[in-house]
Simulated scan of single mutants.
Amino acid sequence: MKRLLTCLTCLALVLPVFADEARETPLFSTEGYRLGRYRSPTPEHAPFAHTLDTSQLQTQLKQRPDTLLIDVYRRQWLHGRFVEDEPHSNLPASLWLANTGDGQLPPAWQAYLTDNLHKVTGGRRDRPLVFYCRSDCWLSWNAVKRAATLGYTNLYWYRDGIDAWAQAGLPLLPARPVEFPAGHAAP
């Protein structure tokens, strides 16, 4: 009983600190990007894109073979390079633009996203783009919102991402993020 009271006393002292932290750290920026707690329940739809489930994505890929898949899963960045801290696989034919779904993108990461989207679309802002990450992941929500802000008009959000694809028994391939081009200002 004494141990239980000690634990409850500790909790009573610590909880107000966590509550103060939660009040001080907003979940969204003034521009509407999710700033943290990226792995938490997401909304049913993104207002700037069509939300797809796995069967709808398969149909999209069959009907529009020019659809581009953009994986925005995070990868550790250290000393000017991506560090493979864990294996990552994504949907076949995907472009992995790591770390571009963060709520606040420093200028170098913004340029990395902007330049790569321009390159793969050939400057066509109406090219179908499907953004994804994992299930319950705000990174893809942020990234598709950012693509809309950049003027891309044919956007899709594969809300449950890699997890739903794997759960459906569909193939995933080992992936590597697109590197910063030589001479490009990396963060």
Results as ranks from 00 to 15, higher is better:
K2M: 10
R3S: 10
L4G: 05
L4M: 12
L5D: 06
C7R: 06
L8R: 03
T9Y: 03
C10W: 09
L13G: 10
D20H: 05
E24A: 11
S29H: 07
T30I: 12
T30M: 15
E31L: 11
Y33T: 09
R34N: 10
G36H: 09
R37C: 10
S40W: 05
P41I: 08
P41W: 03
P43H: 12
H45A: 14
P47Q: 12
F48Q: 14
A49F: 02
A49L: 04
T51M: 05
L52Y: 03
L52G: 07
D53N: 15
T54V: 14
L57S: 07
L61I: 10
L61F: 03
L61M: 12
K62P: 03
K62A: 13
Q63G: 07
Q63K: 15
D66M: 11
D66Y: 12
D66G: 10
T67A: 03
L68I: 02
L69T: 04
W77H: 03
G80A: 02
G80K: 00
F82D: 11
D85S: 14
D85N: 14
E86R: 15
P87D: 09
S89Q: 13
A93G: 06
S94E: 08
L97W: 00
A98R: 01
N99R: 11
G101D: 06
D102L: 13
Q104H: 13
P107E: 12
A108F: 01
T114R: 15
D115V: 08
N116G: 08
H118P: 01
K119A: 10
V120A: 14
T121E: 08
T121G: 07
T121V: 03
G123Q: 06
R124H: 05
V130W: 02
D136V: 00
D136R: 07
C137V: 05
C137M: 05
L139H: 06
S140Q: 04
V144E: 00
K145G: 09
R146Q: 02
T149H: 15
Y152G: 00
Y152M: 03
W157C: 03
W157P: 01
Y158K: 10
D160G: 06
G161E: 08
W165T: 02
W165M: 04
Q167D: 14
Q167A: 15
A168S: 14
L173A: 14
P174N: 05
R176S: 13
F180I: 04
A182Y: 01
H184I: 04
A185K: 12
A186P: 00
